Simulated scan of single mutants.
Amino acid sequence: MHFSNDELGEIAERIIKLYRQLQNTRQEQDRLKRQLTQNVAHELKTPVASIQGYLETILNNPKIEETTKEQFLKRCYAQSERLSSLLRDISLLNRLDDAPVQKSRECVDIVSLVAEIQKEVSLQLEEHDMLMVVSLPEDLMVEGNRSLLYSVFRNLVDNSIAYAGVGTTIEISAELASQTDGPSLWYFTFSDNGQGVEPHHLSRLFERFYRVDKGRSRKMGGTGLGLAIVKNAILEHGGTINVRNNPEGGLRFDFTLPVA
């Protein structure tokens, strides 16, 4: 397409470029929506198919042994729990996408929040022979939504427990950094000394449903949305997050959250 060599032609050329950029953006959004829909359908299909298979076996075999029936029902319950977790995570991400959820901001005591999580996962840590070392300032208060902040730390801990490996250590630390051109921030470091991931996976770890090892991730019961929730919740608080491999092994997440 040719434009006249004057001011009107320049304006027309800019309009056409903007229109094409808008079209490309819409096409990319449509592609991402289709991809997300396909991923959701795929993730829902597995637990639903398992539940249906176990129940059909029970219904079609009236004389099935009680021990076998109980085992199948327990598996159904486990799959229903996974399904519930998946639906909760999808719902939370949708709320983060569609509208601000931080209507109830408050001063959140991160030290007590992390201690609460540590207590909740103590049995899992023991089963994996893992340590959780917390080095946080006593006055560590963050302004934000407690539920979302809980999701940040809980998902990071769950991720390490699932993938760092037996006998590893999780470390959480933070320091205060004052800024001259904005509010003060807490700088957090969350790391483990596990196996880490291949470098080409790092840039995609926060993508929804992205898995480094798909078979192992599903076996561990993960929804594939944990790190996506972490990133979106931190962005919702005005913070930033990045991930890298530790030189000595394991993953390291560096992120910021606003001081209360």
Rank of each mutant, 00 (worst) to 15 (best):
I170K: 00
F255V: 03
G221L: 05
G222A: 07
S50D: 13
V152Q: 02
Q118T: 02
V101T: 11
R82K: 14
R208P: 03
N5R: 08
L36N: 08
L123G: 05
G221W: 07
L73A: 06
Q195H: 09
M132D: 02
S173T: 09
T37I: 12
E28K: 12
E70D: 13
E171R: 14
D254I: 08
F3L: 09
N61V: 00
V134F: 03
M141F: 09
N24D: 15
E126P: 05
S217L: 02
L32C: 02
F255M: 03
F206H: 10
E120F: 09
S112H: 10
D97E: 10
E171M: 06
I117F: 03
K219L: 12
T57M: 10
V40C: 11
N94L: 15
I234T: 01
R75T: 07
L176M: 08
D129K: 14
Q179G: 11
D30V: 15
T37W: 08
T240C: 04
I241G: 05
K119W: 06
S91M: 10
Q102N: 15
L148P: 01
S184I: 04
I172R: 01
D192A: 05
S91D: 15
Q23Y: 03
P183L: 04
R95G: 12
Q21D: 13
E43A: 14
R105E: 15
V108K: 02
L22Q: 14
A164G: 04
F209V: 06
L205F: 03
D30K: 15
R88W: 02
A12Q: 13
R211I: 00
D192K: 01
H201L: 06
E138S: 13
R88T: 07
G226M: 00
E116G: 10
R82P: 00
K45S: 14
M130C: 06
P62A: 06
T223A: 09
A162Q: 13
Q102C: 09
P199Q: 08
V111K: 13
N245I: 02
N155C: 12
G239F: 01
R75D: 10
Q71V: 05
Q35C: 08
E138G: 06
G224Y: 00
E10L: 12
H2V: 12
Y54P: 01
Y54L: 08
L32F: 06
L32A: 06
E65H: 11
I110K: 01
R75N: 14
H237S: 10
G215D: 10
A177E: 10
R211T: 02
K103R: 09
P47D: 04
R154I: 07
E7Y: 00
I16H: 13
I229T: 09
T169R: 06
E127Y: 08
R208K: 15
D6Q: 02
N61A: 14
N193H: 05
L131I: 02
D139Y: 04
I90E: 11
V212M: 13
V230Q: 02
L235V: 05
L44A: 07
